[in-house]
Nucleic acid binder design. Structure first.
Length: 271
DNA sequence: AACCATTCCAACCGCTTCCAC
DNA sequence: AGTGGAAGCGGTTGGAATGGT
């Protein structure tokens, strides 16, 4: 594939945007929208490439951008989400209304990384959660070999919730997602309930479960119980199956609570 | 006041993903 | 199914702002 040239053509301006350029871009988008970023600068009369226009709009000019410093709450949210999602800045930004991926990335590199460094005791959410899941599953082996994740905090009754089993041995992402999405043999009539992968749906890939397995092995030397199953509540919303929405969660909240279900959500130390 | 070091953030670069054909 | 253009994404950087000496 031949890469489309971007900002390479002579005559296209680079560097900081002027107030005048901002105004032209805002006026144009307010009037015509931004269906085609590549064509936009030419039509709007800007000597910028479409990519630059898009970035300027998304990171600075959009009307719903929240200005000002990040609150402590927002910072904590970023830290927690980063533990879960890694450097998926756009996914993190999707959880923080009015904040952009670029902004979050900058805050992470300039503030939060330092803050965590200064507080090496800060718990690793994922590690804690993996250890917890591992422990719960071990206990389940001695009992019913089934872990039902139904006691998540939430105001509603579980009525209308369908529990589906996920086993750590279903280590391939496709198998796990087939259980989640209802594509497996036992749910092959539920194709309309498919949950598409999205930013709101953290990946439970090979790494996730292999970390579960290794975290367990490191302490006991034994394998993760072969028969352990996690019963995860799903319910139908429109045409989609979503986890635990009956409990008042959206998908991300559900996975967050699942991963941190040790009972004590890790507290971040005050500076 | 002048210089230097550090911090911060807007913007760019290049790769990946998506989607229409 | 393959291709190419456009959009999206994350890493990196340039330079303005700020702080220290």
């Amino acid at each position: 594939m031949v890469r489309a040239p971007c900002c390479e053509k002579m005559g296209l301006k680079k560097g900081p945007w002027t107030a005048e350029e901002d105004q032209i871009l805002v006026n144009y988008i307010q009037q015509y929208g931004h269906g085609n970023w590549r064509a936009l600068p030419k039509q709007a009369g800007l000597l910028r490439c479409g990519k630059s226009c898009r970035l300027r709009w998304i990171n600075y000019l959009r009307p719903d951008i929240k200005r000002g410093n990040f609150t402590r709450e927002e910072e904590d949210t970023i830290i927690k989400l980063h533990e879960m999602l890694g450097n998926r800045w756009s996914a993190i930004a999707a959880r923080l209304p009015g904040r952009t991926d670029n902004e979050i990335k900058n805050v992470w590199h300039t503030h939060l990384k330092k803050r965590l460094k200064q507080n090496p005791g800060t718990p690793e959410i994922k590690t804690t959660s993996i250890a917890m899941i591992s422990r719960v599953a071990q206990e389940s082996k001695q009992e019913s070999e089934l872990v039902t994740l139904s006691n998540l905090p939430g105001p509603e009754s579980p009525e209308g919730v369908e529990y589906r089993s996920i086993s750590p041995q279903q280590c391939s992402s496709s198998e796990i997602s087939s259980v989640i999405t209802g594509d497996d043999a036992s749910h092959n009539n539920m194709s309309s309930m498919k949950v598409e992968e999205s930013d709101d749906f953290p990946e439970m890939d090979e790494n996730f479960w292999s970390e579960v397995l290794s975290s367990d092995n490191s302490s006991s030397g034994s394998n993760f119980p072969a028969a352990a199953q996690f019963q995860i509540p799903f319910s139908t919303v429109g045409n989609a199956m979503e986890p635990a929405v009956q409990y008042g969660y959206d998908s991300m909240d559900f996975w967050y609570n699942l991963f941190t279900k040790a009972g004590e959500s890790p507290e971040l130390p005050e500076i």
